[in-house]
Write a protein that binds this DNA or RNA. Structure first.
Lengths: 210, 210, 210, 210
DNA sequence: CATGAATGAGGATTCATTCAT
DNA sequence: CATGAATGAATCCTCATTCAT
């Protein structure tokens, strides 16, 4: 009986169509911006019928939501996998600095795999509605909290000078996000992101003092 | 003849109406976001007829453009007035740091006077169209260039360590903008912006080293 | 007391303003067509305020009506003055033909004085509303009736061949109007209207036969 | 798979809807005039939604344009099919006259099939914009050129008297168009168009001479 | 399940007309 | 009397969404 195979094929086809729509959506969103993008732009890009869109998503907002969800899930996964946690307890200022560098560099592959999405969310998400703005801010805040936790820890262990760790954590995340945006906008044309990370870490840890 | 007085009165009335529309627009934009704002929202807020809007602006984009223009003009004025330039040549690292602090603090009143606009542009301008995104980036770039100029100068005079001044300038502006956004979003509820500036400068100049 | 003089001056000024508006209106109507013309176009051309228009006319239709009235009155005057009537009873076919030629040539100066109006009415009047279409047709019909009267007369006197004078009268007026339109559109660039009249009369009276 | 049949059915449906809109448009245009007609009048007549109009046409002007295009194409087809050319070389003045009569009579069925359109264009087209006025004039000019060609030919063969063929051709077309307008306006209530053609030809060829 | 024609509510835009100065 | 700023009704036009095939 082919019915089972048929069903399997159907499911695969459906998943393919959905992925096709998601991929098309992100391309168009990125090019025209979320607000200027029409459903018809997405289905034209995906080369499917207008009605097909509504078999998979209820609205433009929903497909955007799903795009964001995929990204945040990947980040959360990376977080919860413990990859971002310090595995070795640093013993010196330099070790602590190197470890921080390593922590940021671990995020690079995720961002590299999701360049389009990251760029889209950094630009458009906060202008859609309050819920999205909140969600974006929550993600940022998590990074801030993580950074603060490290900073507090480092001060306790006397690796770094005393400071208002809440503010400094925000400043660090501020650097990261702005740098990321510039990099995604190809502002540092021939520069590898690793170099940016290294220079950032050096600035934060060593400052500009000779 | 009263014709001249009449005309004068008319001109003042027109300017008042236009200002009313601009003020109303910024309030509504800020509350609902540029994209969700309808012309009818603006005229309702301004308590004028729908047609009145079109006597002064051709579209929603145009009124936004004018709001941006007013802000950039004020900034450019501040720039060109030389207020942002170093007046005293610093002689030591500390003098240089203090001077930088002072430079940033000079921007604070402009931002304070234009809180709404600044917040609006940082959030919405880049999502309207490419032209706006470019314009915003151009403004940022000017600050980056200024920062780079100072950095180059400081390195030449041996006040600070050698570094890739282009990147570091971007990092500094990144800190500033992100901090600004957070502050405008009332993230640092009870914190004075001066404290943020001071902490930022300290981070950039001294790093986290003990 | 200057009050009387003042009043006189006021009246003259009013007449001047009204004439200014009428002249401006016809120019704009001719250029953009009645329907595409806005009141604002007319007052801009006349260099008066928007409100001034409404001191003299209640609507766009009314100013058009007045323009038409002036023309029809002039034509009616010419008619009633008897200028268009045969003064001499023709005695031969040739005399009759010459007389007809003269009758048409008498209309030339009126048309020449009112070129703009004639062109405007021939093009736009019938598209404004039924009343205007009727009025235009009535004018045409009067000419047709006149022509028919002459034709009947001529047949009775054995100057011309028998024919359906209603139809032929219409045909003759058709020739005249179409020729007029072409001439007003500068289709016969270097041709004097007299030549057109002569050729027309020749065609109607003599046909193409050798 | 039914996809092909489906598509076929869709295409037919679309064509039907479009035709429905075109038919409705012409009816409303004719009744209210082009300028007084609103898009909503057309869709109400066609009994479709407002948005449906915009699936097929971008504006009122565009649907009018398409109506005109259909008519001109039919005329051009008739022209190029050679039906309007002389098939038999006339040998006498009478033969030439009969042939001319036949030529005009050949146009009658086209006009009869397209009464509405012809009437619409003769009345409204020239009041829409310059482009339309030009297009209309071009069509008239083609007929003038054809008439002139015949006249030149006839003079060469000594069938008719010498004359300014350009002017006379214009005069003839003027007769035709004016007559046509009157006929379409039901001015000759009980008169068959053939009678009009015959009387016109007689006038042009034989004149009024006995 | 896929399709795309049809829909109409929502929002933008125009312009004749009013009226306070 | 002249003015032109203000008005809002009228109309255009878009596009997310539905639904019959």
């Amino acid at each position: 009986m082919p019915s089972k195979l048929r069903k399997q094929a159907d499911i695969e086809k459906k998943q393919k169509t959905k992925k096709n729509l998601l991929d098309s959506a992100i391309k168009v969103f990125l090019l025209k911006g979320y607000h200027k993008t029409k459903i018809s732009d997405i289905v034209t890009k995906a080369e499917v019928g207008q009605g097909t869109f509504y078999r998979y998503f209820n609205s433009k907002r929903e497909i955007f939501e799903e795009l964001l969800k995929e990204l945040t899930e990947e980040i959360v996964l990376e977080f919860s996998s413990g990859n971002l946690n310090m595995k070795i307890t640093p013993k010196t200022f330099t070790e602590y600095m190197d470890m921080s560098k390593a922590a940021f560099l671990q995020l690079v592959p995720i961002i590299d795999r999701n360049k389009d999405r990251v760029q889209l969310f950094l630009r458009d998400a906060s202008t859609i509605d309050q819920d999205f703005e909140d969600e974006i801010n929550e993600i940022f805040d998590q990074f801030v909290l993580l950074a603060k936790y490290y900073l507090d820890n480092a001060i306790e262990n006397n690796f770094i000078r005393k400071c208002d760790t809440k503010i400094v954590a925000e400043l660090i995340i501020g650097i990261v996000i702005h740098t990321l945006k510039n990099w995604l906008n190809n502002k540092y044309n021939n520069l590898h992101i690793e170099e940016l990370v290294i220079e950032s870490i050096k600035l934060v840890f060593l400052g500009l003092k000779i």
